[in-house]
Simulated assay, not measured.
Amino acid sequence: MSLKAIGFDADDTLWQNEQFYRLTEARFAELLSDYADPADLSAKLLETEKRTLGLYGFGIKGFTLSMIETAIQVTDGKIPSSVVADILAAGRDMLSHPIETLPHARETLEQLMGTYRLILITKGDLFDQERKLAQSGLGEFFDAVEIVSDKTAATYERIFRSHAEGPGSALVVGNSLKSDIVPAIAAGSWGVYVPHALTWSYEHVEAPADEPRFRQIEHLGQLTEVLDHLR
């Protein structure tokens, strides 16, 4: 094997992200506490998010629209305008939260830069992902940045053929089995799974433990050891 390129997921792999969704969802439940039980509201919100992903896409703006749509549903269209305003304010707060890089992110990228072609591969809203990358201070380590609407095997094949020597000589690192690992392996790449304490339930699938190109580590600081074993 001749590994040439490494694709890094961003949200909850390089910096914190899901925690802000959880906090906002708790705020949403409090706003709608007179109309729905928190558990039922959470289930309805997830159902709305799944149903509208094809329209709104991934990211904070789609999440905010899903909250408003769910609020209209659970109030039978009687949601007060003040609550809509509060939901919009919560979405704006998410779009301005400070970026907190995860442990070992910077030092790992520093170690790998120059040895491998490093590619940031993230999905979501273009403006927000660009903002987070700029504020993270990690942009200097990447040879290419791809902000995509979704992550599939075809996505990884296109990216690694465009920025490297193809998926067979590439590896993907991420916290989502569904978006980062499974499709990367399906494309012919290696997949290194770095679990995060908080992962959106939509991203939950079984780990491809029997796949020879699958690896799992506890944190990014262990990635270089994995790479050494693959050489």
Score class of each variant (00 low, 15 high):
residue 43 A to P: 08
residue 43 A to L: 14
residue 43 A to C: 08
residue 44 K to M: 14
residue 44 K to S: 13
residue 45 L to Y: 09
residue 48 T to M: 15
residue 49 E to P: 12
residue 49 E to H: 12
residue 49 E to S: 10
residue 49 E to C: 13
residue 49 E to M: 14
residue 49 E to A: 14
residue 50 K to V: 15
residue 50 K to E: 14
residue 52 T to W: 06
residue 53 L to V: 10
residue 53 L to E: 09
residue 55 L to V: 06
residue 56 Y to K: 10
residue 58 F to Y: 15
residue 59 G to K: 03
residue 60 I to A: 07
residue 60 I to H: 05
residue 61 K to H: 14
residue 64 T to G: 08
residue 65 L to W: 08
residue 65 L to V: 13
residue 65 L to T: 07
residue 66 S to L: 03
residue 66 S to I: 00
residue 67 M to A: 01
residue 67 M to G: 10
residue 69 E to T: 06
residue 71 A to R: 00
residue 71 A to P: 09
residue 72 I to C: 14
residue 73 Q to C: 06
residue 73 Q to D: 14
residue 74 V to T: 00
residue 74 V to H: 07
residue 75 T to L: 06
residue 75 T to S: 03
residue 76 D to Q: 13
residue 78 K to M: 12
residue 81 S to P: 05
residue 81 S to E: 15
residue 82 S to K: 12
residue 82 S to F: 12
residue 83 V to R: 08
residue 83 V to A: 11
residue 84 V to M: 11
residue 84 V to G: 02
residue 84 V to N: 00
residue 85 A to S: 15
residue 85 A to G: 12
residue 85 A to P: 10
residue 88 L to A: 09
residue 88 L to V: 14
residue 89 A to M: 10
residue 89 A to K: 14
residue 90 A to I: 03
residue 90 A to F: 04
residue 91 G to Q: 05
residue 91 G to H: 07
residue 92 R to H: 13
residue 92 R to G: 07
residue 92 R to F: 12
residue 94 M to P: 08
residue 95 L to G: 06
residue 95 L to S: 07
residue 96 S to H: 07
residue 96 S to F: 09
residue 97 H to E: 05
residue 98 P to Y: 02
residue 98 P to F: 04
residue 99 I to K: 05
residue 101 T to D: 04
residue 103 P to T: 00
residue 104 H to P: 05
residue 104 H to V: 03
residue 104 H to R: 06
residue 104 H to I: 07
residue 105 A to R: 05
residue 106 R to P: 07
residue 106 R to L: 05
residue 106 R to D: 07
residue 106 R to C: 01
residue 107 E to K: 14
residue 107 E to M: 09
residue 107 E to Q: 11
residue 108 T to E: 02
residue 108 T to N: 05
residue 109 L to R: 10
residue 110 E to N: 03
residue 110 E to G: 06
residue 111 Q to K: 13
residue 111 Q to S: 13
residue 111 Q to E: 13
residue 113 M to A: 15
residue 114 G to R: 00
residue 114 G to S: 02
residue 114 G to I: 01
residue 116 Y to T: 03
residue 117 R to S: 08
residue 118 L to G: 08
residue 120 L to S: 05
